[in-house]
Amino acid sequence: MRKISYAQAGMEALVEEMRRDPKTFHLSTDAPDALVEEFGSERVRATPIAEGALTGIAVGAAGSGFRPIINWSMVTFSFVAMDQIVNQAAKIHYMFGGQVKFPITFRTSVGGGRRVAAQHSQSPYSMFMNLAGLKMILPSTPYDMKGLLKTVIRDDNPVISFESNRLMDFAGEVPEEPYTVPLGKADIKREGTDITIVALAWLVHEALAAAEVLDKEGVSVEVLDPRTLVPLDCDAIRAAVQKTGRLVIADEAGPTAGASAEIAAVATEDAETFAKMKAPVKRVCALHVPIPYTPQLEDHVFPDRDNIVAGVREVMDV
């Protein structure tokens, strides 16, 4: 099968869905050339650097029968649009009694590794998970990126596509034939019997690398990628933990009130799952600090395969 990058897979999803539905249009502060060439500058607009306005414009256009696709670029810039995201987009369907649909795709990049310091290295998806009314995806492979993003564009709600900075050039198999990946369906990236690692985005790959190391030590690791954070595939997480009895959660975000905390609660709040657990949950996350610039410090702050291996050994030793 052909291989394309994570970034290319996202672009393919956009092109296919914009061909499919003339009600889609694209707003971002830089208009991608490939989209402008095919769809023209009416449907693919470069906006002023005014994320609050362009996010609100998406809400109003969606409520008027269109299907806007917004690229905030780095997630940092979404914070400039917080009123429109938190007070408007997330609540407007509910607040108005479900009168109309607001199908909006928000794309944004998250995570570190680019030596761009505190503002541009964030992974704040749990802030958005805390709101009711937004769906969100966090793909880890080109295949999932394309299939999930196509589903997101077709969804009738505001959905945020969090996309990993570290994976933009990562190549993987993507079929030529059309396909979609449903929201709320986790994917087992590696089968195992001793311990479950629930890993997010780039850390899926670090977890897979850790699993190889641990395999040589006789530990059979299962790696589960939730792929979507809202809706979260609670059934798959619980089933995996029930099978192995042990849970490590690997997330590039900090631990405090993070997606990792939610995933831990999903497993441990469930009596049936809890009864089968042989050890406490272990989270392998970034340190709870703003991300520093210099490589020595940045790499120390973010978790990687070594931290995951250490985390697994700790849980296995209980």
């Binding site: 249009f25 009416e42 449907r43 609050g52 306005a53 362009l54 996010t55 609100g56 414009i57 998406a58 809400v59 109003g60 256009a61 969606a62 409520g63 008027s64 029968g65 269109f66 806007p68 009123d83 429109q84 007070n87 408007q88």
Partner: peptide, 15 residues
């Protein structure tokens, strides 16, 4: 809060 939203309705009208 409503000003950008209705501006989006204006964009929809233009499209």
């Amino acid at each position: 809060g409503g000003i950008p939203i209705v501006t989006g309705a204006g964009l929809a009208a233009q499209l």
